[in-house]
C-alpha cells in the first residue's frame, strides 16, 4: 500500500465516520457540525482527485453558506436535544437493516465493475481555466438557466418567510 493509498484510505474512513456521526448524533447542532466536517473531508477527497477548484467551491458553498443556513435555522428555531423527535426502536432497527442491506447490495453490485485504464488523461482539468472554458462554452445554457433557478429560489424563499402573509393556517 503506497502512501497515497494510505492517506486516501484514512481520509475515506474519516469521511464515512463523520457522515455516520451526522446520522447518529442525537443533537441536531452536532449533526450539523459533523456534516460540516464531512464536507471538509469530501473537499479533501476532491483535492486528492486533483479537483482543487471544486474542493474550494465545495467549502465556500456547502460549509460556508448552506450549512451556515442550516445552523442558523436550527438556532433560530432553538432546537436542541430535548426537542429532537424520537424514532421508534422498530423503525430504527428496520432502517438500519435496510440501510445496511442497501449498502451491501450496492457495494456487491459495483465491486466487480471493470474499468479500463484511460491513457490520455489530463491532470489540469481541475484548474479554473479549464473548468471556466468548459462552463462558458459547452455548458453556457445550463449555467444561465441555473442563475434563473437561483433567482426563483431566492424569490421563493423570501416570499415563504415573509411574516405578513400566512400561507398555511
Amino acid at each position: 500500500m503506497s502512501t497515497v493509498e494510505l492517506i486516501a484510505t484514512i481520509l475515506g474512513g474519516l469521511t464515512v465516520g463523520s457522515a455516520l456521526m451526522v446520522v447518529l448524533s442525537t443533537h441536531p447542532v452536532r449533526s450539523v457540525l459533523f456534516l460540516i466536517l464531512t464536507f471538509f473531508m469530501i473537499s479533501a477527497n476532491y483535492i486528492m482527485l486533483n479537483a482543487q477548484f471544486i474542493a474550494i467551491v465545495n467549502i465556500i458553498v456547502y460549509a460556508g453558506a448552506i450549512m451556515v443556513l442550516f445552523l442558523f435555522v436550527l438556532m433560530l428555531l432553538n432546537l436542541s436535544k430535548d426537542t429532537e423527535p424520537k424514532t421508534s426502536v422498530l423503525m430504527k432497527i428496520s432502517a438500519a437493516i435496510a440501510g445496511g442491506v442497501l449498502a451491501t447490495v450496492l457495494v456487491a453490485a459495483l465491486k466487480d465493475a471493470a474499468f479500463e485504464t484511460i491513457e490520455n488523461a489530463d491532470n489540469t482539468i481541475g484548474l479554473v481555466e479549464q473548468l471556466g472554458m468548459l462552463l462558458f462554452d459547452k455548458y453556457v445554457l445550463p449555467f444561465e438557466v441555473s442563475s434563473i433557478l437561483f433567482i426563483s429560489a431566492m424569490v421563493g424563499a423570501v416570499l415563504l418567510s415573509k411574516k405578513e402573509k400566512q400561507i398555511i393556517d
Binding site: 424514532t87 423503525m91 428496520s94 432502517a95 435496510a98 440501510g99 442491506v101 442497501l102 447490495v105
Partner: peptide, 12 residues
C-alpha cells in the same frame, strides 16, 4: 421515513 424505507426495500 417509512416511505423511503419501502423505497429502499424496492431498490434492494
Amino acid at each position: 421515513n417509512s416511505y423511503i424505507l419501502w423505497m429502499v426495500f424496492g431498490i434492494i
